[in-house]
Simulated scan of single mutants.
Amino acid sequence: MPAKIITVFNQKGGSGKTTTACNLAGALGTRGRKTLLVDLDEQSTATLSVGAASDDRPFPAALTNLAQSPRPDREIAKFVNDYDFIVIDCPPAIRSSAPSVALLISDLGLIPVGASGGNLWAVQEAKKLALNAQINNPDLKLRSFANMDQKVTIVQQIFEAAGQDEDIPMLKTRLGFRTAYKEAEVSGATVLQVKGAKAAHKEVNSLVDEILKVLGE
C-alpha cells in the first residue's frame, strides 16, 4: 500500500501549521506507523525543531527538507512505497506554489484555523487553492480544525464561522492554546513525549483518530 499523504496548509502565518504537522507525524510514528515529515517551508521551522531532538529521545518520524526543490512532488513520490504516512508542512506565503503542488498528490488537505480574525480570510484563500486542486485530484479530502483554542468570545465566533463552511468540514477536535506545544517544539519532540501534558495528549490523539477515520484507516 502506498503512503497516505497529508498536507497541512494555510495561507496565513501563525495558524499553527508546523505545530500541527510535527505533532501529527510524531503521533503517527508513536503508534507504529512508519511516517515521513516533509518540510516545504523555506523558514524550515519543522526541520529546526526536529533537529533539536536529543539522541536518547529521537523524534518518532523521519524528516526530509524539500523547501528548495523545484519539483517536491517528484521527490515525495520516491518515498510513497517506503512509508505508511507522509505529512507535508507547507509555507504560509500565498505566492508559493508549494501548497498547490502538494495538494495534487495528497489524500487529505488539512487546514489549521488559528484564533484570529485574519484566519477567516486565510481559510477562504486556502479553500480556493484546495477546491482548484480537487479538479485534478478528485480523491482529495479536505478538513479544517480549530487550533490554539481559547475560551474567549471572539475566538469561539471565529471557529463557529469557519465551521459553517460546507465545502471544508471542520473536525470536532480542537487543539488548545497550551505551553506544552511550545515545549515540544523547542525540544524536538511531539507533545505526546512531554510528561504531564495530559490535556494536550488527549487533543492530539483525538485529532489523529479523526484523521485516520477520514482516510478510512
Rank of each mutant, 00 (worst) to 15 (best):
L108K: 06
S100T: 06
K213R: 10
D82S: 15
L48D: 07
R95S: 12
L110R: 02
L120V: 12
G176C: 13
T47F: 08
A162I: 07
Q11C: 15
A197P: 05
S100M: 00
L36R: 11
E42D: 03
D165K: 09
N10E: 00
S54R: 04
D82Q: 15
T190S: 05
A199V: 09
K12H: 08
D41Q: 00
L66K: 08
A133Y: 07
I105E: 02
L120F: 12
E183N: 08
K172W: 11
D84K: 09
I135S: 02
I76E: 08
R178P: 15
L212I: 15
E125Q: 11
G26C: 05
R95D: 05
K213C: 07
A146Y: 07
I111G: 02
D39C: 01
I76N: 10
A93F: 15
N10T: 06
I76M: 12
V80S: 13
M148Y: 11
D41K: 03
M1R: 09
Q11T: 15
P99D: 01
D39G: 03
A27S: 14
G188M: 00
T20Y: 09
L36C: 13
S187F: 06
A3K: 00
S54H: 00
Q43M: 03
E160D: 11
W121Y: 07
K34M: 15
V191E: 03
L212H: 14
E166H: 07
P70F: 02
V123E: 04
Q68D: 08
K195Q: 00
P2D: 10
R143A: 10
K182C: 10
P72H: 06
E42T: 05
T20P: 11
G117R: 09
S69M: 05
I154F: 01
L129M: 03
I158A: 08
G188Q: 00
I111A: 07
E210S: 13
S97I: 05
N132T: 06
N10Y: 01
A93H: 14
V152I: 11
T7Q: 06
K141Y: 03
D165V: 12
V8W: 04
Q68E: 08
Q193A: 12
K4R: 12
V87A: 10
F9N: 03
A67G: 13
A61D: 07
A27W: 02
K12C: 00
K128F: 09
D39W: 07
A180D: 01
G216M: 01
T7Y: 11
I105N: 02
R57F: 11
A62I: 09
S49C: 01
V214N: 04
A52R: 10
Q124Y: 14
E125F: 14
I76R: 09
K4H: 10
L215M: 03
S97A: 11
D39E: 05
E203H: 06
G13V: 10
L215R: 00
N65D: 01
T153K: 02
N137V: 03
P92W: 10
G32H: 15
V50D: 02
V123F: 09
S44K: 10
K128G: 13
V191A: 08
L110M: 06
Y83R: 03
K12S: 01
K78T: 01
D167N: 05
K195I: 06
S49M: 03
D41C: 09
M148A: 13
E185W: 00
